[in-house]
Design a protein around this nucleic acid. Structure first.
Lengths: 205, 205, 205, 205
DNA sequence: GATGAATGAGCATTCATTCAT
DNA sequence: AATGAATGAATGCTCATTCAT
């Protein structure tokens, strides 16, 4: 990348950032349909027209709201060498749900709504869908556990990953449906103890 | 036919039914917000104004759409006395997912999208949200198992129900996201074996 | 007229009366434009369609609200032989404004609005406009005073009548415009003392 | 032209002006309720949406319609130092009625019909109703006469003003009701001689 | 790149009126 | 005469999107 951005480029990047930040804020309070482009531009202190410089359609800004950090979770988790595999999975789930809570209900809703129809896009360089990435992330953690000889080689890595991802998606849904009245993280913790613990124990070396 | 109805009343009822049927059809393809009253009346072959003869506000028709059959699954399951509790839960999940598959991908997507924002409506007489109903249904099955002395009294009924419902919602999401390429029922079966079996075993009498 | 009304005719008359009564009541609270035909029929306990049996258009009911009594005022006044001409005119004005106040603001407004475009209709047998009738009424009172030798023959009867009627219409307008906050009757009393008294004195025998 | 305006701002101002001009024209013929936003925008040759660029709600345009010239009559009258107070009031009435005659019957009718329901709006900077402004105008003339020592201090300024304004409104009504067959200005002249003259004489210094 | 005026389709809802029964 | 379901035009207002400057 060109380190020497012109003033113009720098300012363009700032405008984009302001729009995303504003969108985050208004979407935390109103549903996507209830939020108008003007709500966003007004809060960003930018003209209506500018919105369309950065986003072709209103809904495109949602994709931009989710920053990359969530996608690197698997790597982060695998670096936690002091945690055993069960704890690492727990850490992954907790972090995952934490980020979702941080974005707020409406973002979560909108994200789910958008994601329900699969669109491939570039995630960390690879062209894939989000659910595939999530599945891969968990599989990577499990695979790493096998490599480290924490988990037996015959562990059904794909199924366990599916089990976890489905649970995460299901919890997100419940969180949205209950208007946030369910404490997803605490709930997830209890569910793990209930199910995941047994599962992983079964294959622990 | 009810002989006590005048022709007029009968026709009024028909008009109402046509509206509900039309609403069902259009709501299978577009979200509530995207569906206009005119979409419904046009399909029903009825004037715009007539909609408001039967429904005070646009959203009131949603209450009328849901026929009861979907919501009686718990009762049906509890009548399966030949199945043990694990099998009954499996039966519930299979039936649940079956119905979703029957409706098809688009309806499933739409249903999830709509349901993500909680709307209370009358389900079998009670005013509640859909997720609450689903949770209650599974709890009812588990409670019945306790009553029948299949399950120990200290089983964390609420958590187990949450575990199952979250899994069901998560599977639906994955199904939509993968454009149906995941065989949810088979997948659910394997997940059950992985997690649910252990959980229930733990509390089996 | 036929004293022997059939049951049907009697009931028809009742329905009409119920509609007029209901219209009076709702028009006391909301403006004509804000009142719907259904507001009236609902309060009257009558079907929507029935309204149109008695009134060709919505606005036609306003004419029916003003009963005949107001038209006989001149005769009533002339019978007050104990009052002098100034007092009789005062009595006329007071009664006139009283009746208007009784009907309420909205009826007064609607009546004025309708009357602004002249329509001849049968008043006490004669085909004339309302303003002509009002003018005639006051002239009749003044003429009677001349006949009774209370007023000099050269009194400009027409102008004085115009003076009074204009004042009455003007007060009605002010009453409506001020949303009833002006006490028209008290105001009229003071105006009379101010102007009318002098005028009549000038021509008193 | 203001040189500090950009072309854009100038054009925006023009659009706003076109809307106001169009609104004036249509409101001269139909009541506010009967006039649709589209009536205005169509006549202005502007899109529906543009209306809402300049006016938040339909009724907000009314505030912008009234140019000041009509409302300065009192000031104009008070400058006529060669006329005595009676003549000044006559002048006021004549000018007032002249303007009404100039607008024609239909506008007068419509104006009365609209004004019958009070709407406050900005007149010469103050938020008031039209009847209050008219009353104030006449009071101002009378008060000025007191200041100039033409009228005695104890003259009931408010009542006299009410007397005159009611007469003006009443004459307008009669004019409309009689379909213009009454010569209001001549009539007003005669009424003045009849009543007003006496009244003012009574308080003349 | 930024602006913001302009666009115009779209929508929920109301309501006077009709008419078959 | 009474009913009330049906009609469908009408309306205020919103908003994503465009585009000339």
């Amino acid at each position: 990348m060109d380190k020497t951005l012109t003033n113009r480029q720098r300012r363009a990047l700032e405008t984009r950032a302001k729009l995303i930040e504003a969108a985050k804020r208004v979407l935390a309070e109103k549903s996507f349909d209830e939020v108008s482009v003007e709500d966003i531009t007004a809060l960003a202190g930018v003209s209506t027209g500018s919105f369309y410089t950065y986003f072709k359609r209103k809904e495109d800004i949602v994709d931009a709201i989710n920053d990359d950090t969530v996608f690197r979770l698997a790597e982060i988790v695998n670096e936690k060498t002091d945690l055993d595999i069960y704890e690492r999975i727990r850490f992954y789930c907790r972090e995952y749900l934490n980020r979702i809570e941080d974005h707020g209900l409406e973002i979560c809703r909108q994200w789910l709504r958008n994601t329900l129809s699969p669109v491939e896009f570039k995630i960390l360089g690879e062209e894939k869908t989000i659910w595939q990435h999530d599945l891969d992330s968990v599989e990577k953690i499990l695979q790493e556990a096998i490599n480290r000889n924490e988990l037996r080689r015959e562990a059904p890595v794909g199924d366990i990953a599916g089990f976890i991802v489905a649970e995460l998606y299901g919890l997100q849904s419940l969180w949205c449906m209950s208007d946030g009245s369910i404490d997803v993280i605490a709930f997830s913790e209890r569910l793990s103890r209930l199910g995941l613990e047994n599962v992983l124990e079964k294959y622990t070396v």
